[in-house]
């Protein structure tokens, strides 16, 4: 299964949530490959706590591969290389967790067509090998997004199951921006259909993930003064209505992740130790991520109404 993580704006928690999703799937026994297609700022290695390349590989990463400089992009076995204490060894029953990092320098591609050819081959090959291939795309209508759309429209990948996750924060601006990214004039759907995707199939493969959503237990809500509480309740209902009007209603939502103090300070994986042992992370965050990981492969979550 190929899963593409997109967002219209930065700061939506796209990278960190999708990395956590990859980690949770691997814990459940899937072989997972995480590709850092955030060409502007490849930071996935930092989330997985892989040393040496916190801001991208010096050479041989995804860029170099798509440019044709290396025949195979660098692969990092996270269980083997991570410096995070809980990631040092693969837990019993876990699948493989492989990171394909971006390059430190980044930069443009000489000819887009060549890059798309290589990208298609890479996706096809990884799909052959891994249960889940998670591709973290750069924010906005970027070259990475176009390349992913074009590759998946090619005959080589026409039968591969593809899903698109659009991450957004739970604010008015973010809801409108995410709707624009998907349904807008040059949005994912319009662009995908122009590139040869089947409209109904592409629409059905698309879900939203609400990130940094203020939870019932968050201090802002729990200790709010009565007028604040009333106001927040009203705004929350307005946002619900706004999301539904713009095609981001409950039927199109795969999950929502509450705001998490740990992630506000540091992009990292939320492990069970963080929640149960040291208790630095909230249990709600863990259960939200678990639910997201479960629903990702649940056919019911992808049914269209």
């Amino acid at each position: 299964m190929l899963v593409f993580a997109a967002s219209d704006k930065g700061g939506t928690g796209r990278s960190v949530t999708s990395a956590n999703l990859a980690y949770r799937r691997a814990l459940r026994g899937d072989d997972v490959c995480y590709l850092d297609f955030d060409f502007g700022s490849p930071t996935a290695a930092a989330v997985f706590a892989v040393p040496d390349i916190p801001r991208g590989a010096a050479s041989g990463g995804l860029h170099s591969h798509l440019r044709g400089a290396v025949t195979e992009p660098l692969r990092i076995d996270v269980w083997d290389r991570s410096e995070h204490d809980s990631l040092r060894y693969a837990p019993a029953g876990a699948g493989r967790l492989v990171l394909v990092p971006g390059d430190l320098g980044g930069g443009e591609f000489a000819t887009a067509q060549e890059a798309v050819n290589r990208c298609t081959k890479l996706f096809a090959q990884l799909e052959e090998e891994f249960d889940l291939v998670l591709v973290d795309l750069s924010a906005g209508r970027s070259f990475a997004v176009d390349m992913a759309l074009e590759s998946t429209a090619r005959p080589e990948l026409r039968s591969a199951p593809c899903h698109w996750l659009v991450f957004h924060r739970w604010t008015r601006q973010h809801i409108l921006a995410a709707a624009g990214l998907v349904y807008g004039e040059r949005g994912l759907l319009a662009n995908g259909i122009a590139l040869g995707h089947d409209p109904a199939r592409l629409r059905a493969a698309l879900r939203f993930v609400r990130a940094v959503v203020p939870g019932q237990d968050s201090p802002g809500i729990k200790h709010a003064r009565p007028p604040q509480s009333v106001w927040m309740h009203a705004v929350s209902r307005q946002l619900d209505a706004l999301a539904a009007e713009n095609g981001l209603g409950h039927g199109k939502v795969l999950g929502s992740v509450p705001e998490e103090p740990v992630l506000k300070l540091q992009e990292q994986l939320i492990t069970d130790e963080d929640v149960l042992e040291t208790q630095v992370a909230n249990p709600e965050t863990r259960s939200a991520l678990e639910q997201l990981a479960r629903r990702l492969v649940d056919d019911k979550a992808w049914e269209e109404f």
Binding site: K121, A124, E128, E129, E156, A160
Partner: peptide
């Protein structure tokens, strides 16, 4: 190897294949 790899890639898009292998495997 690159010549062999090109042959494999060429074969992958053949119309006889439905792209739904029974198990995951590495080349």
């Amino acid at each position: 190897g690159s010549i062999a790899s090109r042959l494999l890639d060429r074969a992958r898009g053949h119309e006889l294949l439905d792209g739904q292998p029974p198990l995951k495997s590495r080349r």
